[in-house]
């Protein structure tokens, strides 16, 4: 019986495979032919696009900036998201449900709208600049658009909701009685975090951190809008290479480098964590 129903899944599976894997395959295959510009490619298989990527300082710098802003954004988002997640998870009132719902809804508001909100807040005559100017802390309006800080803020804005939801689901697995037990047996609040909450949430930090990092590595809209053409990340570079330079093969190779590097970074992180875990530094 089950096998017969299973058969109905095969057609959608094939369609999905063709659309997703097929297009990926064509795209990646493209990256192994020389780029002749204007959408044309050479006929011989070659690694020339990859060689160019790894020898051209422009590409390498973009690659490095992408990893840097993603890592910084992921770390800051975790730091910022954890207290929120913790407070919401430990709330006993109904308010917790409303807050969670609010976070979920705001997380799924399209990033374009959110980024424009950020741009307004941080613009020359926006709230933040005006306040800082009036307080005399800065001498002239400071724009985040086109700076790496701006891109980091944009990425954090994009991922903070996810990080709160992820960490919330981790914190709720730590029973409050463990905190009481730690406190009653002599631990201060700080020590309770150090010895109980942080170690127990550690696997969540690692997985959550990696997920947010991955989202940042692939984020296009916030990076494009806040980068303002001056800060390039790999996704933005891929889009420009395809849309403005019409160099499909080059773009494909950049995209493939991005894909493989993200996979490798995740793999190495998880292996490193497992090493630590078997050394009993992190919770099983």
């Amino acid at each position: 019986m089950e096998n017969r129903w299973f058969a109905y899944l095969i057609p959608p599976f094939i369609v999905t495979l063709l659309l997703v894997a097929g297009s990926q395959f064509v795209f990646i295959q493209n990256s192994f032919y020389q780029d002749l510009g204007l959408g044309r490619t050479g006929t011989d298989l070659t690694l020339v696009n990859y060689i160019k990527f790894f020898t051209d300082s422009f590409y390498l710098k973009t690659f490095w900036i992408t990893i840097k802003v993603s890592a910084i954004a992921a770390l800051l988002t975790l730091f910022l998201g954890f207290p929120i997640a913790y407070v919401v998870a430990r709330m006993k009132s109904r308010l917790a449900m409303f807050l969670l719902a609010g976070i979920v809804v705001s997380t799924f508001v399209t990033i374009v709208i959110k980024v424009f909100g950020l741009i307004i807040i941080f613009s020359a005559d926006g709230v933040i600049n005006k306040t800082l100017l009036n307080l005399g802390l800065i001498e002239r309006a400071y724009s985040i658009i086109g700076t790496q800080e701006g891109v980091v803020i944009g990425l954090m804005h994009f991922t903070i909701g996810f990080s709160v939801l992820l960490l919330y689901s981790v914190v709720v697995t730590v029973p409050p009685s463990l905190e009481y037990a730690a406190q009653i047996h002599g631990a201060s609040r700080l020590r309770v975090y150090q010895r109980v909450i942080i170690p127990l949430c550690a696997p969540g930090f690692v997985v959550g951190g990696l997920m947010i990092f991955n989202m940042c590595m692939g984020a296009f809209t916030s990076a494009a809008l806040l980068g303002g053409g001056r800060v390039l990340t790999l996704p933005v570079l891929v889009q420009r290479t395809v849309m403005m330079e019409v160099k499909y093969s080059t773009a494909a190779s950049i995209a493939f480098v991005l894909l493989v590097s993200v996979i490798l970074i995740n793999l190495f992180s998880l292996i490193a964590i497992r090493r630590l875990r078997s050394a009993r530094l992190v919770v099983a």
């Binding site: 009481y180 047996h185 010895r195």
Partner: peptide, 30 residues
């Protein structure tokens, strides 16, 4: 934490990431 009390909870509240002896020594370390 400043009252010098010991407490046993209904769900035991043992620290799952610490061994039995590490659990027992928790208050001593603190």
């Amino acid at each position: 934490q400043h009252r010098q009390i010991g407490m046993v909870f209904q769900d035991y509240a043992l620290f799952p990431h610490l061994t039995v002896s590490e659990n027992i020594s928790f208050g001593l370390v603190e």
